[in-house]
Design a binder for these strands. Sequence first.
DNA 1: AGCACGCCGACT
DNA 2: GTCGGCGTGCTC
Length: 821
Amino acid sequence: MEKIYAQVIINQFNHSIDKPFNYRIPVCLIKSIQIGQRVIVPFGMGNQKIDAFVINITNFCNITEGKIKDIEQIVEETPLLTKNQIKLACWMRNYYLCTYIEAIQVMIPSGLKIEKREMISLNREILDKTKKQKWSSSFDREFLQYLFHKKTEVELEEIKKRFPVKDLKKQIKRLQQKEYIFIRKDFRTKIKDKEEKYIALSGKYKDKGEYLKEIRKGAYKQKQVLEYLEHFPCNYREFRKKLKVTSSTLKPLLEKNLIKITSKIIFRNPYENKGFKNPSVSLTKEQRFIIDEFRKLANDSSQKILIHGVTGSGKTEIYLNMIEFMLNKKKQSILLVPEISLTPQMIERVMGRFGEQVSILHSGLSNGEKYDQWKKIKQGKSNIVVGARSAIFAPLDKLGLIIIDEEHEITYKSSNNPRYHTIQIAEKRCEIENCHLVLGSATPSMESYYKGKAGKYHLYELKHRVKNIPMPKIELIDMRNELKEGNYSILSNSLKKELYFNLENKQQSILFLNRRGYSTAVSCRQCGYLEKCPHCDVSLTYHFNGKKLICHYCGYSKLAPKICPVCKSKKIKYLGTGTQKVQTIVEKEFPNAKILRMDVDTTRKKGAHQRIINSFKNQEADILIGTQMIAKGLDFPNVTLVGVIIADTSLNLPDYNSAERTFQLMTQVAGRSGRGDLLGKVIVQTYQPNHYSLIHAKNHDYTHFYNDEIAIRKEMLYPPFKEIINIVFSSENEKDLIQQCYEFYMELINHTKKVKKDLQKDIYKPVPSPVSKIKSKYRWHMIIKTSYPNEFKEILRKIYHEYLNKSQMHISIDINPTSIL
DNA sequence: AGCACGCCGACT
DNA sequence: GTCGGCGTGCTC
């Protein structure tokens, strides 16, 4: 008989088991097993049961016959992974140097993770036989008594709480060996389908009166139940609440089959009854043109398109038209947005247009809601998925189009393993599933625009705004002049003047600063002592509320000193400006103005975010002060002034793309001004008013910015001309770390020499990371800038494994990092 | 990771 | 003589 094998990926994160394992498919499972399914297999010398994903089914394998074990069981009938997803995962493993299981895990909702529980129960038979035996220790006696009283099996975690002994596991194992107790391993998923119970008359009799005849005379409560249900068969929980019945009332009714309790799977819908409406609108010439072009292209195989459209040029309407076109071809679409919680308008518009067939996936949903949305997609009930980064993995099987809005946003790059970039995943997915990719942005990333120019993407420009609203006027203020003129305030005279003007005319203003807290550093004027975090290599930020010094990396906090801890001087200096300081200064300057602040500190509570936005939208405040989070997507029609307190914060970052980031940020912040009927104004304060990124932002001139920046990238051998690989080493022991990462470096050089001549000059020596210590771990890093990433990846995977085994340091590899900080 | 196997020191 | 400490190495 033909033997059949399955190749599986073990669901356990470890680099040394990162390969497919072969298992025999037992006869009873041959009919039902499918690629992509989750199975339980015995693994390792102890044959511990573990879940795994089937990635292939074959009729031969070259593993010694005696070694092969049988698959134990199938977890779900429906495969969790499609074949295309498996293909994608394999590609991700190679490209991002992650493990198979890391790549697989980003594709399935976390609620489906399997929880392994150990259930302990007493062997009552043995206990009877040895009743009079004295237990060797008091632990045994107490423990077995505890189990005896429990009657059912008990979860190990619960026992741990009751018996907080160090070697509990060992004790339990010993008792199991003596056969006093049983241990059963139980697998279950964290999240399950939500069920709701309903109660109704059983339908036993046609005539309602017949029901009442069956109950005991004087059973007043039972009668009430029957009469109620005659008119309102309903939700069980609500019913119990309303009629205040207990189970003792219902029990006889159930026994006589007069009533029935049924359960139904409920869809956890976070957008129920929102009633969004969004009819299609007439299009501008530019919009029409792009859509027509897309329709022509879309008949061909996989096409990639980049739309560069100024803010307000109506990209969303184009997306919706493309999705509609796909629907007519019976194809599905994914629409990605940078951070869905910040762009509720997008959800409104898509759901308003397409209704029930839309699924939403983002981090704001509960695990249960996420699972239900995923299930809906999996069952083929969704033709459109709107979501953040991870929605790129949505399990649609008739995918025709992927749209990535605001494609330049860094949120599209994952900061956890696998450190994927959504655009790359999208490109790969389009290749695998033969669908189209559309990228859109007002400030495309250098990489994407370069590809557009080089003809790798079809490039389209939207140069006009839909309502022909003029762009806001941007003014650059040289803060050095302010100092010369004796203005030491963080507010320039022009900004003050404009704020006054807006207050008087009841128009709203936004002040932007990319730094939270009050002061960014605290030091002593006398001896120069600087308050630093004991666990991280950063200065502590002073926070006004609580008068605390806080580390923004690890959260360490302490009270701000009144005197210098070193020289006892009282001359403590607060350096640098954060949003809190801006707030106090603005409050002082404009005592009558109502001010709101929006940053991580004021939005920590659930719903606080939306509350601040709504409050400002309803014009309950005159000035909104905030960080990054007010820069994106928000629409306040009455805002006519945006002030950037210091543009240099992002400009001075020692990162290869800091100019690009600044240009994007300035363009975005500026876009918050003048969205209504009134003309908008933007004031950008800086110490570098001649910097090209600021000048081009001022002129709303993407093209010239691109030309300047791309020239620098070319000269400096940065992306898109070379690929960057960033290898970060971290360890608590600094000495070992330095030594080991140098060893790693040498090893890499040696391997590289063998592969290709001159390749080693792409490797830069390891240096301390810009933040050289985080959470008590020292950090060094090493950069590779190369045109041969594949060659390097192959070598890296080898040495990486080797070093993970033999050294204590942690190694993290980031392919195409968006930041090397 | 988790588990077995193996090779050494401190106990009945 | 044995229990149990952790170092090593493998997992279809």
